[in-house]
């Protein structure tokens, strides 16, 4: 958890490793009410040319919120969440989040965080989040 006044531009965020399991992928799809077969049905995912069920975007967004607030604290609020999508996420892999502070605005007590979530196939997600501190 960060104190706004102590945050410095360029400061690194603590890395977060999220083990990717079939349960997280299918559970994440259902918790986000996304029943697209590629996220919950192995045979359907294979028929789509994937090796396994793959993570849906809304779960990726949820994990980004966890990574960001794990650093900024539970009382901080997200102003935006902008991601660029890359390699898919399959069970058995690990999602490693890393990031740093790329802007700080004292006038509205916000910082911009630039982050990356990588797996063994490369970059799964890159993006920025603007967080407002209480």
């Amino acid at each position: 958890m960060q104190a706004f006044d102590a945050i410095e531009l360029g400061q690194a965020m603590e890395a977060l490793d999220v083990p990717i399991t079939a349960a997280l992928i299918t559970g994440g799809a259902i918790a986000t009410r996304d029943y697209f077969p590629g996220h919950i049905d192995l045979e359907a995912a294979r028929a789509l040319g994937s090796q396994a069920v793959f993570m849906n975007i809304l779960t990726t967004n949820g994990l980004v919120q966890r990574f960001v607030q794990g650093w900024s604290g539970p009382q901080s609020r997200l102003c935006d969440l902008k991601i660029k999508l890359g390699a898919p996420h399959y069970p058995g892999d690990t999602l490693r989040f890393s990031g740093s502070v790329t802007d700080k605005r004292p006038q509205d007590r916000t910082v911009e965080l630039s982050f990356k979530g990588a797996n063994s196939m490369g970059s799964h997600v890159t993006g920025t989040v603007r967080v407002r501190f209480p």
Binding site: G28, A31, G62, L63, R66, P74
Partner: peptide, 15 residues
């Protein structure tokens, strides 16, 4: 729905 979403994502639901 909020609690279940937090549970899966690993986000602290209490706030």
């Amino acid at each position: 729905m909020i609690r279940q979403w937090c549970e899966i994502m690993g986000v602290d639901a209490s706030p």
